[in-house]
Amino acid sequence: MKNALITGATKGMGRAIAAAFAHEGVNLAINSRNAAELASFKTELLQINPTIKVFTAVADGSNKEDLLFFADSAADELGPINIVVNNLGMYQFSRIMDDESDLFEKMVNTNLMPAYELYRFFGKSMVAAGEGHFFNICSVASLNPVVDAGMYSVTKAALLSLNNVMRLEMQDYGVKVTAVIPGSTLTSSWDGQKVNKDTMVLPEDIASAIINIYKMSKGANVDQIIIKPAGGQL
Rank of each mutant, 00 (worst) to 15 (best):
residue 183 G to E: 00
residue 87 N to E: 09
residue 152 Y to R: 08
residue 13 M to Q: 08
residue 52 I to E: 00
residue 227 I to A: 05
residue 204 E to T: 12
residue 228 K to R: 10
residue 121 F to I: 11
residue 204 E to K: 09
residue 109 N to V: 10
residue 181 I to Y: 02
residue 102 D to G: 09
residue 70 F to Y: 11
residue 104 F to S: 14
residue 186 L to M: 04
residue 110 T to F: 07
residue 166 M to Q: 15
residue 19 A to W: 01
residue 33 R to V: 08
residue 203 P to F: 12
residue 137 I to A: 03
residue 6 I to D: 09
residue 15 R to D: 03
residue 76 D to C: 11
residue 57 A to D: 10
residue 19 A to P: 01
residue 64 K to N: 10
residue 64 K to V: 15
residue 51 T to V: 07
residue 227 I to G: 04
residue 215 K to N: 13
residue 50 P to W: 00
residue 182 P to R: 04
residue 133 H to E: 03
residue 98 D to V: 01
residue 220 A to T: 08
residue 15 R to E: 07
residue 174 G to S: 05
residue 234 L to R: 11
residue 227 I to S: 05
residue 14 G to H: 05
residue 27 N to C: 05
residue 89 G to I: 06
residue 184 S to H: 08
residue 97 M to H: 06
residue 93 F to A: 12
residue 157 A to M: 04
residue 14 G to Q: 07
residue 198 D to K: 12
residue 142 S to R: 03
residue 13 M to V: 15
residue 72 D to M: 12
residue 123 G to R: 13
residue 53 K to N: 15
residue 192 G to F: 06
residue 151 M to L: 14
residue 195 V to M: 07
residue 179 A to V: 12
residue 175 V to Y: 14
residue 182 P to I: 01
residue 129 A to G: 06
residue 120 R to I: 13
residue 43 T to L: 06
residue 163 N to I: 12
residue 209 A to T: 00
residue 144 N to A: 06
residue 189 S to A: 13
residue 113 M to Q: 15
residue 62 S to P: 10
residue 1 M to Y: 00
residue 108 V to G: 14
